[in-house]
Simulated assay, not measured.
Amino acid sequence: MLDRAQWFVAGMSIALSVQLSQPVAAAVPVGKVVQTAQTNSSEAAEKAANQGVQLYKQGTAEALRGAIVKFEEALKLYREAGDNRAQALSLLVLGKVYSELGEKQKALEYYSQSLPLFRAVGDRSQEAITLNKIGSVYSVLGEKQKALEYYSQSLPLRRATGDRSGEATTLNNIGKVYSDLGENQKALDYYNQSLPLRRAVGDRSGEATTLNNLGILYSELGENQKALDYYNQSLPLSRAVGDRSGEATILSNIGSIYSELGENQKALDYYNQSLPLRRAVGDRSG
Rank of each mutant, 00 (worst) to 15 (best):
Q105L: 14
V30Y: 06
Y56G: 02
S139M: 13
G95Q: 07
E263T: 08
A67M: 05
S165D: 03
L77N: 01
I250H: 11
L91C: 12
F8H: 06
A25E: 14
V97W: 10
E72I: 05
E80F: 00
P23C: 12
K176A: 13
T209R: 11
P276I: 00
G162T: 02
S285H: 13
N132C: 11
E127Y: 03
A240G: 14
I14Q: 13
V53G: 00
A107W: 06
P23A: 09
K133D: 15
T169V: 15
Q233H: 13
N173A: 07
Q273H: 03
Q87H: 04
E260I: 10
R278K: 12
L64I: 10
G246Y: 13
R244H: 14
G182P: 01
G142P: 01
I250N: 14
E73D: 08
G222C: 01
S285P: 04
V137E: 01
D269N: 13
K266T: 09
R198W: 04
L2K: 02
Q54L: 12
S245I: 00
Q153V: 14
D269R: 04
E80G: 02
M12T: 09
A27E: 12
S165R: 10
Q51T: 05
Y270D: 03
S17L: 14
E72T: 05
I174V: 05
L131K: 01
L92R: 13
V121M: 10
Q185V: 00
N50C: 05
Q113P: 00
M1D: 11
L108I: 15
T60H: 01
T39F: 12
E260F: 02
R199A: 08
I257E: 11
I68M: 10
L197G: 08
A67Y: 11
N184L: 02
Q273I: 05
T249Y: 09
L217M: 05
A74L: 06
K144S: 13
Q193N: 06
R85Y: 11
G242H: 10
A86Y: 08
L228T: 07
A107D: 03
A208W: 11
N272R: 02
Y151K: 03
P156Q: 04
L217A: 05
E207A: 01
W7G: 03
D269A: 14
F71M: 06
L235V: 10
Q38M: 15
Q6D: 03
S152I: 08
P276M: 11
L228Y: 04
Y178F: 15
S99Q: 15
A48I: 08
P196R: 10
A128P: 02
Q265K: 13
Q265N: 07
V34Y: 09
L277I: 07
A227G: 13
Y78H: 14
K57T: 05
D83G: 02
T60N: 02
A67C: 06
L20Y: 07
Y178D: 04
Q265T: 08
D283P: 00
N232C: 04
P29H: 03
V177W: 07
E127W: 05
A48D: 14
S252N: 15
G202I: 00
S136E: 15
A37P: 01
D123M: 12
S41T: 09
V177E: 00
A168H: 01
P29F: 03
A248L: 06
